[in-house]
Design a protein around this nucleic acid. Sequence first.
DNA 1: CGGGATCCTATCTGATACTG
DNA 2: CAGTATCAGATAGGATCCCG
Lengths: 137, 137
Amino acid sequence: MSRSHIDVPELVTVACPVSEVIDSISGRWTVGILTAAAQGPVRFSELERVIRGISRRVLTLKLRQLERDGLLHRTVYPTVPPRVEYTLTDPATELLDTLRGLTDWAVRHRDTVATARAEFDRGQAQAQEPEPEQESD
Amino acid sequence: MSRSHIDVPELVTVACPVSEVIDSISGRWTVGILTAAAQGPVRFSELERVIRGISRRVLTLKLRQLERDGLLHRTVYPTVPPRVEYTLTDPATELLDTLRGLTDWAVRHRDTVATARAEFDRGQAQAQEPEPEQESD
DNA sequence: CGGGATCCTATCTGATACTG
DNA sequence: CAGTATCAGATAGGATCCCG
């Protein structure tokens, strides 16, 4: 979560806020949590069920982080058993919209990236081969 | 780098590509590297100097990752001493543009977030205090 | 100069058990 | 139900040495 302080002359003023956001939304689950919460108030157990694979602990941690950053609002109903609901704040909704831009990019270049990877990996594999120089003299 | 497969009905189709991108650009340095490379061809040692605090190893790793994903192009000049230059690919340039959207969000909500954090932390601090119940009676 | 190999630490994550 | 506490494994990142 620490900052990357780059030294590129001017662009540093551009890059740093990005880093902060990246820090906020990076991690496997954050976007999923925000997305799930975007539908309306969500309870802890709903999130736990809906975001398959996340552990209690991590879900709690992420929720706290998002709450701390003002992206999620946490409402506790002092009933028994307790009931806690999470809702997106306005900034978070905006953020989710902005994220759509990334989605678009990802979709646009999905196969470009896939191809690049495949090609790169092929190159690496060849470099590993123990010299297939089958020169017929 | 593994995928988060969320179960939220339809939005999963939206969330997953985002996850891929997030995976690509998360990490303290990636955005900084791309930003630095955006100025034009950059050499390894330039990056090392300009991105203060990054280690050789990690820089190498990140460069490989970005190259593999087709975001950076690596050119080796077989001179002695060797000279290697990195340039952004077109998708990467687009990505950087898209990132600008996040920047804007970050700038817009910078103090909103800061305030939220401060307030949250205040609340936490109070919760820690060993019951300051100074009831006068 | 660029970067691979090795070793080590810090942080992140997951699994599980326990509690108000 | 909604967490907290604890422990262990995975991963990111850093330091250093060495080689073409």
